[in-house]
């Protein structure tokens, strides 16, 4: 660990905090354009956060300390996730703290807290949301792990930094297994980020909500933190996907020039990814909740297939 590494790490965290709401705003903007609506300004999520932070917290009568504590934990988990995923450089002092398996664990921890908080007030929507979130979670988590296993098998490591270094900086090889893993990862990230085929971030229609149902009793700074955490999660997933499947442009050391070049690369990739996400959300309709197991089951099977392709076809080469 050295000073430049630490600075790079802090810079990555600050960048995540700055870029994450922007990414959400960009996806919303693209979606509005594709759906022939007038788009909200790009900075709309910031205005929202500012407004929410200013408001008083209106706490439901039955709320326990867990309810007030949970938004901070969820926010902390997402910040940790953003800190260990290489966005600009692979030289991250915090990266050894958690490898990819632990990264899945971080998302799991955040999910448990938000689901428990949803059940805390004891309203019909809260527990409904918590139950659905855990359902989606337990279907998505193994698929995500399998995707990660495929990449880990290629690089013989579960450390995110090493995986990215292997995939980005060795000779260019096309791995068929990564194609399966990539599709599976896309499926999983739609589900995990409460996006359209599985959930609808814009809905408040009671029968269809998952994420929104869980946070329905939150207000003020708690809601702001949860919204920020949701943005960070989308950012973390996007960066993880980019780092695993499109790692070009991420600097290997902590050189200043490398970082300078990595920023436009990251922003460009995120912009394309966000537009892609908006496109998918536009051309798809939300599924019934009991179609979600099929959707995520497909992702799981694809991921396992990717792993088997890796083991059976690619190791002999």
């Amino acid at each position: 660990m050295n000073i430049s590494g630490l600075l790079g790490q802090l810079f990555a965290i600050v960048l995540a905090l700055l870029l994450a709401p922007l990414l959400t705003g960009w996806v919303n903007q693209c979606r509005a354009w594709l759906q022939n609506r007038t788009a909200p300004p790009l900075l709309q999520p910031y205005y929202m956060l500012h407004k929410l932070f200013q408001k008083d917290v209106v706490l439901a009568d039955g709320a326990s300390p867990l309810f007030r504590f949970a938004p901070f934990v969820v926010f902390g988990c997402m910040l940790l996730a953003c800190a260990i995923i290489p966005t600009l450089s692979t030289d991250l002092p915090f990266a050894p703290a958690a490898d990819t398996i632990a990264l899945v664990g971080v998302f799991g921890l955040a999910r448990i807290f938000i689901s428990l908080a949803a059940m805390d007030i004891g309203t019909s929507f809260g527990s409904l949301g918590g139950r659905r979130e855990m359902l989606v979670g337990f279907l998505a988590e193994p698929a995500l792990l399998m995707v990660i296993f495929t990449t880990a098998m290629i690089s013989q490591s579960t450390s995110v930094a090493t995986i990215v270094e292997t995939l980005a900086h060795r000779e260019f090889i096309i791995y068929p297994s990564l194609a399966f893993a990539g599709v599976a990862f896309t499926f999983v990230s739609f589900a995990e980020n409460a996006r359209v085929p599985v959930d609808n971030p814009a809905t408040h229609l009671e029968l269809t909500m998952i994420h929104e149902a869980m946070i329905i009793e939150y207000s003020g700074r708690h809601l702001a933190l949860i919204e920020l955490a949701a943005s960070l999660k989308l950012y973390a997933y996007s960066c993880l996907g980019l780092a695993l499947f499109f790692p070009w442009g991420i600097a290997e050391g902590a050189s200043f020039v490398g970082l300078l070049l990595a920023i436009p690369a990251l922003v460009g990739k995120l912009a394309v990814g966000g537009a892609f996400l908006a496109g998918i959300e536009t051309i798809n309709a939300k599924m019934r909740i009991f179609r979600a197991p099929e959707f995520l089951g497909t992702a799981f099977l694809l991921a396992v297939l990717g792993l088997l392709v890796r083991l059976l076809l690619e190791t002999r080469v």
Binding site: Q54, D56, V57, V58, L59, A60, I121, T123, S124, H204
Partner: peptide
């Protein structure tokens, strides 16, 4: 910002 909190009955989509 601030740390203000007040209590009220749960909202539950107005049910």
């Amino acid at each position: 910002y601030h740390g203000r909190t007040r209590r009220s009955p749960a909202w539950d989509c107005g049910y």
